[in-house]
């Protein structure tokens, strides 16, 4: 699919924004600014962006514990997210959720999720709402290779077919679930084939290649949007860092991540492809790089200064009303 210059620049900027967000929060964690358990999406940006560039605010996504990329790609405010991770009362979720629970319902972002496999059933429900309203919306669940082994994911796939809802299952196979390889934990060794046996088409893509993901996601989302029922996208991709920030990564060969960063980087790939085909100029991409760095820096400065909780609001927001 041919993208306009504007669309190319936008896609690159989104991927770069995710990458630099992730690089920066690792530093801020080391500096003690960000508490809790944080999972880094670096290396997988082409997936979130390749999918979400086909979506608007009336479409939904449901994410995972590794959710920052999906959130940014779906339009969550970066400054609000950064403040959230810093634990500010001014964060996107008032500092109550943190990294694993970033959400912005107004953008159709129904939450990162701390429970592996928690998302797909929720996404099926959002797709059902779209279908009942007849508003042309779709819902997309993002899952890792590991989470495809949860019963909840299987149930959601079957029910999406039975209820015939506009749901897209995106499976990002980054080779590992925590410290266990997907080749070990996926009994049938082929997540795409296993998913498609539920009765919907699954399109496979190279998850390090924005263009491939973008094209396959277009097919899957068009399938769902046009009323043909659920569809899937399976990508093979790589995780540049440990499972969480601080993971000693003994289960990975020495030099593996260095190799991946050099040879499987969606940003490098995108730059090379668009420059070679003379679709974009290096100066345009360089300018976006600078722009993104400035945006991330500004979000960190704002987060450092943002208000903190004093503990008094711990009981707020449990219910809409509770008399």
């Amino acid at each position: 699919m041919q993208l306009s210059e504007q669309a190319l620049l936008r896609a690159y900027r989104q991927m770069k924004l995710i990458r630099e967000f992730e690089e920066r929060i690792q530093r801020e964690i080391m500096l003690g600014q960000i508490p809790g358990f944080t999972h880094i999406y670096s290396g997988q940006e082409a997936n979130a962006v390749g999918v979400c560039e086909h979506l608007s605010d009336k479409d939904y996504i449901v994410s995972t514990h590794r959710g920052h990329g999906h959130c940014i790609a779906k339009g969550c405010d970066v400054k609000g997210m950064m403040k959230e991770l810093f634990g500010s009362s001014d964060g996107l979720c008032k500092g109550r959720g943190g990294s694993m629970h970033v959400a912005d319902i107004s953008k159709g972002m129904l939450g990162a999720n701390g429970i592996v496999g928690g998302g797909p059933p929720i996404s099926v429900g959002a797709a059902l709402a779209c279908k009942m309203r007849g508003d042309g919306g779709v819902s997309v669940s993002f899952s890792g290779d590991g989470s495809t082994n949860q019963g909840t994911t299987f149930e959601a796939m079957n029910m999406a077919v039975v209820l015939d809802v506009p749901q897209v299952f995106v499976f990002e196979d980054n080779g590992y679930a925590e410290n266990t390889g997907s080749s070990f934990s996926t009994g049938c060794d082929d997540i795409a084939v296993r998913s498609s046996s539920f009765g919907f088409p699954v399109f496979s893509a190279d998850g390090t290649d924005f263009f491939d993901v973008y094209d396959k996601a277009a097919e899957a989302i068009e399938h769902a949007r046009s009323g043909k029922g659920p569809a899937g996208v399976y990508t093979k991709v790589d995780r540049f860092y440990g499972h969480f920030v601080g993971d000693p990564e003994g289960y990975r060969a020495k030099g593996e991540t260095e190799y991946l960063k050099e040879h499987k980087c969606c940003l490098k790939n995108f730059r090379a492809r668009t420059l070679e085909a003379e679709l974009l100029k290096a100066e345009q991409l360089d300018a976006l790089d600078e722009d993104v760095m400035a945006e991330i820096e500004a979000s960190v400065v704002a987060s450092r200064e943002a208000p903190r909780h004093d503990g008094s609001l711990v009981e707020e927001d449990v219910y809409a009303s509770y008399a």
Partner: peptide, 20 residues
């Protein structure tokens, strides 16, 4: 359980985790 040894199907060491 999950990752109670760690490293199955990985490219590095086995038994490197022992649960979280």
């Amino acid at each position: 359980g999950e990752d109670i040894a760690g490293g199955r199907g990985g490219t590095g060491e086995l038994d490197c985790t022992g649960g979280v």
